[in-house]
Simulated scan of single mutants.
Amino acid sequence: MNVQEFQNKLKEIQTIAKANGNSLTAIQIRDTFAGMELDKTQLLGVLKYLTSQGIQIEGMEDSATEETKEPERKKIPLTPEEETYLRNYLEELPELSIDTAQAFAALANGDQDALQSLTSYYMKETAKMAADMNAEEIFLADLIQEANLALIQALGSAGNEVRDEKWLMNEVRKGIIAVLEEQTQRKFADDSLVARVEKLESAVRELNDDEDDKNAFSIDELAIILDMKVDEIRDVLRLTGDDK
């Protein structure tokens, strides 16, 4: 896949979405990416990215739409070290017994003690949920902390409506999913950067093979030959240590 072309296509489809009130049809997406020969997994990755940007997609099959909303993730078993960490973490949390219905009612009245009690009480369930959603994109310890943050944010924004456990755990789950999506997008960006580095190194090798002088091409000339921006080439060279 040509990474630069793919990134240009992403920008193009987002421009189309903006012109259509942040909405796209499945046909528009397929037409834009026609010729790139994306497989189903790659297409779903595009859909996931677009929906994460708040773009509504119309005319998509139910199954594809469902996968876009919350893609099925491969369950990653905990390593022995992670199992030990989780066990120790749970053992360090205090054993609490509270009337959750009463606490949620008090929370709706702005009771900060109720907020603290609910936070402490649900930390074990939050950690267990994070462990159940363990993923390659993030360390378990970091995911648990992110889950705790989602717990605190949910309780802090509960408002004056009387909430319940089902609502709270759903909010925590959404928070965990958001973190995993962010990590996935970051990995996508990192992979794209790696691809650009490989593209530059490969092209320079090919050019050097045809030239006696290894410094035959300036950065400006490489930018024209490789259809890359000068700043992009400079960034790649800095990463590889070849900018000296």
Rank of each mutant, 00 (worst) to 15 (best):
M1W: 06
F6G: 04
Q7L: 14
Q7N: 13
E12S: 09
T15F: 15
I16T: 04
A17C: 02
A17Y: 00
A19R: 11
N20W: 07
N20Y: 08
G21K: 15
N22G: 07
S23W: 04
L24E: 04
I27W: 15
I27G: 09
I29K: 00
I29M: 00
A34F: 12
K40H: 15
K40E: 06
T41C: 15
V46T: 01
V46I: 09
L47H: 01
K48F: 11
Y49L: 05
L50K: 00
S52P: 06
S52D: 10
Q53F: 13
G54D: 07
E58C: 01
E58K: 04
M60I: 07
D62I: 12
A64G: 05
T68S: 12
E70L: 07
E72P: 11
K74F: 09
K74N: 13
I76P: 11
T79L: 10
P80F: 07
E82I: 03
T84E: 11
Y89S: 03
Y89Q: 08
P94I: 01
E95T: 14
F104H: 01
F104E: 02
A108H: 00
N109P: 09
D113M: 12
A114L: 14
L115F: 13
L118Y: 02
S120K: 13
Y121H: 05
Y122A: 00
M123I: 03
K124E: 05
K124T: 06
E125I: 10
E125L: 13
T126D: 02
A127Y: 01
K128W: 03
A130P: 00
D132T: 15
A135D: 10
A135T: 07
E136N: 12
L140S: 00
L143E: 01
I144Q: 02
A147R: 00
L149V: 15
A150D: 00
L151D: 00
Q153C: 14
A154Q: 02
L155G: 05
L155K: 07
V162N: 03
E171N: 10
K174P: 00
G175D: 00
G175H: 00
I177Q: 12
V179I: 07
T184M: 04
Q185M: 14
K187Q: 08
A189W: 09
S192M: 15
V194K: 13
V194Q: 08
E201K: 06
E201R: 15
S202Q: 12
V204W: 01
D212C: 11
N215P: 06
A216K: 08
A216C: 10
A216G: 15
F217C: 07
F217S: 12
S218M: 13
I219S: 08
I224M: 11
I224S: 15
L226T: 05
L226I: 09
D227K: 13
I233T: 03
R234N: 06
V236I: 10
R238P: 11
D243T: 02
K244G: 05
